[in-house]
Structure formats: C-alpha cells, structure tokens
C-alpha cells in the first residue's frame, strides 16, 4: 500500500507524536488514580475518564499517522464503540458493587442512593422467594 501521508508531511507526524504522548500520559494518570484513590467508586471515576480519553487520543493519533486508509478509518470507528463500552461498563460496575454491599469511603459526604438500593434489593429477595 502506497502511503502518501507518511514521512512527507511532517506536520501530521508532529500531531501524531503529540497525541500519542498525551494519550500515554492520561493512561498513566488513570492508573495512578486507580492506586491512590480510596474506594471503588472514586477509582472507577479515574479509570473511566482518564483511560477512555487516553485510549481515544492514541486511536486519533493513528488517524494522523496513517491518513484516511484502512487502519485510520478503523481507529475512528473504534472511538464511539470504546466510548459507549466504557461508560456502560462503569455504570454496570458501580451499580453492581453498590447493590452487592460495597460501602462508600470514609471521606464521603452524602449518600442519597441508600433508600433506593434497599428498596430494589428487597424487591429482588421477594422475586427469589416466588
């Protein structure tokens, strides 16, 4: 495959490198947050936001490196899939861990979900008895 973008157009190469470095840095921040933050919910915050943007940035940098060829288009198509996958997975993990009984961390200020969660877990018990 002849690639007219690569090498000749140095502007795209610079953008490719900058986006790649930004992506790797944000992935790193996400992982540091995963270690440092206190409980499951805060950890998921850093895991969804930083890691999603970091990976999207790496995929976007691929578009600049390869141009509108097979690989570049595939990288672009992967971005919305990754976005919806990450958000829905975070939602499912948070809801699942709350209903399973993982407590909020000590620093937490407010919890308005408690009543609703108790109600829905009672409903589930009733369903199981039936």
């Amino acid at each position: 495959m002849q690639n007219t973008w690569e090498g000749k157009n140095s502007m795209n190469e610079i953008i490719f490198k900058i986006l790649l470095i930004i992506g790797i840095l944000f992935n790193l921040f996400g992982c540091i947050g995963l270690v440092r933050l206190p409980d499951v919910y805060n950890r998921l915050q850093s895991a969804t936001k930083c890691v999603t943007l970091g990976t999207c940035s790496i995929l976007l940098s691929l578009l600049f490196h390869f141009g509108f060829t097979e690989i570049g288009i595939k990288a672009i198509v992967a971005i919305p899939l990754l976005f919806f996958g990450a958000t829905v997975a975070a939602h499912a993990l948070v809801k699942g861990s709350y209903l399973f009984g993982v407590k909020l961390g000590d620093q937490s200020v407010i919890d308005e979900y408690k009543d609703e969660a108790e109600k829905s877990s009672e409903d589930k018990k009733k369903m199981n008895k039936k």
């Binding site: 805060n42 936001k49 930083c50 200020v109």
Partner: peptide
C-alpha cells in the same frame, strides 16, 4: 481528575 489524582493531599469529597 488528573489534578485530583496527582495532588499530594487529594482534594476529594465524594458522595
């Protein structure tokens, strides 16, 4: 998020 993660005192008030 990067600021909150890298800050030494971790300014969070979750809820």
């Amino acid at each position: 998020v990067a600021y909150r993660v890298l800050h030494p005192a971790m300014p969070i008030r979750p809820g």
